[in-house]
Design a protein around this nucleic acid. Sequence first.
DNA 1: GTCAAGGTGGCACGCTCATGCTAGATAGGA
DNA 2: TCCTATCTAGCATGAGCGTGCCACCTTGAC
Lengths: 210, 210
Amino acid sequence: MPKRVDPDARREQVADAVIDEIAEHGLRAVTLARIAARSGLAIGSIRHYFGDTLREVMRFTLDVLVQRALRRAETLSDDPVARIAEAIAFAAPTTDQERKENAALVEYRVMGRTDPELAAEITATSAAGAETIRSLLGAALTGRVIDEETLHREALLLFALVEGLSFSSALHSAPLREADVRTMVTASVNRLREACPPAPAAGHATVGRA
Amino acid sequence: MPKRVDPDARREQVADAVIDEIAEHGLRAVTLARIAARSGLAIGSIRHYFGDTLREVMRFTLDVLVQRALRRAETLSDDPVARIAEAIAFAAPTTDQERKENAALVEYRVMGRTDPELAAEITATSAAGAETIRSLLGAALTGRVIDEETLHREALLLFALVEGLSFSSALHSAPLREADVRTMVTASVNRLREACPPAPAAGHATVGRA
DNA sequence: GTCAAGGTGGCACGCTCATGCTAGATAGGA
DNA sequence: TCCTATCTAGCATGAGCGTGCCACCTTGAC
C-alpha cells in the first residue's frame, strides 16, 4: 500500500473507469464489479471513497462529465459570428476521449429523463447551454433588426442542432467534422444576419440588450 | 376467456404497455412484471406470444416504434423546399403519443449503441433517414450550383438537426413547435439556395442527379 | 364427442448484484 | 512507540428478475 493517496485523484480514477465502461457497454452495464475490474481496485476500496454506494459513484461521474464538457467551452474567439459557430462546433467531439465522454453524457442524460435526482444537474446545465446560444446569437446579430421572439426561436433551433451533434456523435449517425460544422454554421449565421434588416443608426439599438 | 384472440393485436397491446413504461420510467425499468401490470395480462400470457422471452418483447416493440415513425413521414408536399422542411419538422413530435414514442425510440437508440442485435435495425433506419434528407436537399437546390461534397455536408448538418429535435424532445431541452421548425427550416433552406449560384441554362445540370 | 391448438396463468430455481458489515494493514502525527 | 485515520479488501445476505417448465381451461375443427 503506497503513501497517502490523494482522494480526489482516486475518485477521478474511478470516474474514468465508469466512463470507459459506459462508452463500451452502456450505462446499464455499470456495476461495482466491472468498475473494479477496470480501475484495478477492489470493490471495498472503491466504496471507501464514495460513501459505500454505487449511486454515489455514478453521481460523482456525472459531475466529472459535466465539468469536462463545460471546460471545453471556455475559449472562444472574439468575433461574434465566429463565437457562436465555435460554441456549436464544440458539440462535435474531435478526440477519442471527447467522443467517449460525450457518449457517456448522452447515456446519463437519457437516464436523467426518469431519475429526478440526476435530472436536476442535467437540466440546469442544458438550460445554461441554451441561454449561452441565445446570447451568442444575439451578439452575432448586433446591428440587425430581429424581434425577441424570432431570436428566441432561432436560438432554440441552433440549440437543437447542438443536441443533435452530441446525440448523433454518440450514435455515429451523422459523421461530421468539427471544422466542417464551424464552416457551415458560420455561413448559415451570416446568411441569417444578411436576411435581417439593418438596424437604424446607433442610439436606436433594437437588440442591444445582451 | 374470450374467443380466439388476434395474436397480432395482442402483441401490439403488449408493445404499447412497453412504450408506456419506457416513457414513464425508462427502458431499464422494463420487466415482465411491469409489462404485465400495465397490459392487464399475466406474465405467462405475455410470454406465450413472444417465444417465452422478454428479449422478444423488446425486439417486437422496437419494430413497432420504427414502423410508426416511418409512417409519419409518408405524406409530404410537392414543393421541394417545403418537402425537406416538413421532413425535418416531423422530428418535432406534436401529440403526447408521438412524444412518448419518440422518447421510447431515443432510449432504444441509446441502448442500440452497445447491443449489436438491436443496432442493425436502428442503424439501417437512421441511414435511410440521412439519405432521404440528402436527396430532399438536392431536390430543393435544383437549378443551383453546389458541389457534391458540400451538398453531402449540408445534408448531414440538417440530419444532425433532425437528430437534435428528436433527442431534445425526449429531454424537454429545446421546446420547439413543429410549425415553427417548419417555418425556420424553410427560410434557412431558401437562404442556402439563394447563396448558391444559379445553374447554367438547362442542358448543363450540375445537381440533376437526384 | 374427441382432440389438438390456442390461451391464461404461475411455481421454483438459479443468477446477478448492491449493500451492511467486518477485518487487517499502513501511514503519519503526537 | 502508540494511536488514530486512512486505505485495501471481501463475506454473507436479501432483493429482484428471467426463464425452464408445468397445469388447466377454452375454442374450433373433424
